[in-house]
Simulated assay, not measured.
Amino acid sequence: MKSHLTVFALTAILIVSIGMAPAFGQLTNESIVVTTDKASYSEGETIVITGEVRDLYSGTPISVIVKAPNGNLVSIAQIDVGADKKFSTEMTAGGALMKSEGAYIVTAQYGTVNRSAETTFEFGGAAATVTPPEEDESMVSDTMVSMGDGNGSIGYEITGGQLLSITPDVDANSLIVGIDATSDGSLTLTIPRSVADALLETGEDDEFFVLVDGEEVDFSEDVSSTDRTLTIAFQAGAEEIEIIGTFVVPEFGTIAAMILAVAIVSIIAVSAKSRLSIMPRY
């Protein structure tokens, strides 16, 4: 009888132990929990991350790690656990590292990987950034265009359209004039020599080179000691007039170099022939 009672007691202990094992394992898995205040966020919203630990370890902070859908690190923070065994932190949805739409993973780790928990939240993606167009360097009034930065003003008259802007192209030694030509018309520009000019190496005036939508056109010009006034005709639909001042076209530079080389060779040849002709013959 006693042996039967012993077997029964051992069996009861074994059953109780087996029944308690899952409960103990569940407690181990819940040594730390983490959650967010919402399931999804839009750009600019505040994400509140909170959690709680089962056991308090003095001097050990919580590491809260947020990763993007592609696995890239978005943020990491070290948070102290309160005396009530709870922790909390906040972050703003969006930013340079948080642009993609999708599920983001929040991992809270308390000392070791065995004491960690995860949760997720959805992010709607960063809004497309629209960059406003840069303002023209010129300010256009009814009769004048200010080049800005104290670079002077250009007077103008236009028929058949509207002058939109004048922008200097320093590299090309030119002025780019934007127009809206509603019909055939003409544009007269009074350009101070301090703004743009076309000069020969001798200092004398050279001609400007004028293009309307990339095509060379004829123009009339009046010249003074301080200004050069150009009148340029255009057709309906024209959008851009380029006025090119003192410069060297690459093709012209090459031809000029070839002509100079031929001239030098010719001079050398003539000089050599002249020296030979004056040498005494024996």
Rank of each mutant, 00 (worst) to 15 (best):
K85I: 14
S153I: 02
V64W: 01
T107W: 01
P280K: 12
D84C: 07
G185S: 09
I76W: 03
A238G: 07
M98P: 00
N72S: 03
T167C: 08
E134L: 07
E137L: 13
I166V: 10
A117E: 09
T92G: 04
S277W: 13
T231H: 03
A196M: 10
S174A: 14
K85S: 15
E52Q: 10
A269W: 07
D206C: 04
I176S: 13
L187P: 06
A256D: 14
M20A: 08
A93V: 11
S225H: 07
L27E: 15
I65D: 05
S183I: 15
I176L: 12
I15G: 08
V210H: 01
E216C: 02
V130N: 12
S146H: 05
G253N: 09
G178I: 00
M1D: 10
L175R: 00
V106H: 04
F24I: 15
G59K: 09
G125S: 06
T226D: 08
A257D: 13
S194R: 11
T92D: 06
Q78F: 08
L27H: 14
G102V: 08
I15C: 11
S63I: 04
D171E: 06
V81Q: 07
R115N: 09
I15W: 11
G203I: 02
T60H: 07
N173P: 03
K38Q: 13
L175W: 08
A261S: 15
D84Y: 00
G178S: 07
T46A: 09
G161F: 02
T35W: 10
I105L: 06
P132L: 05
A21P: 03
V140G: 01
L5E: 15
F247W: 03
S31K: 14
E135P: 00
V106L: 06
T190I: 12
D180N: 14
E135S: 04
G185A: 10
V7C: 14
I241T: 05
V210M: 05
T46F: 05
A261K: 14
V33P: 00
F209A: 07
M144C: 02
T231F: 03
V248D: 04
L276E: 11
A128P: 00
T254E: 09
E207L: 13
A263K: 15
A257Q: 12
G150P: 08
V130D: 09
E207K: 14
S274N: 12
E201K: 02
S224N: 12
T107E: 09
D171R: 08
G245L: 08
A83N: 11
Q162H: 08
V145R: 02
A238Q: 05
I232Y: 09
E118S: 03
V212W: 00
E122T: 08
E137C: 01
G160C: 03
Q26W: 07
S88A: 06
A77H: 06
I62D: 03
T50V: 07
P133E: 08
D206G: 10
E118W: 00
G253V: 06
T143S: 02
G214M: 01
D136M: 04
G160K: 00
A196E: 12
E134T: 05
L163D: 01
S88C: 01
T246W: 04
V248T: 05
R228G: 01
V66W: 01
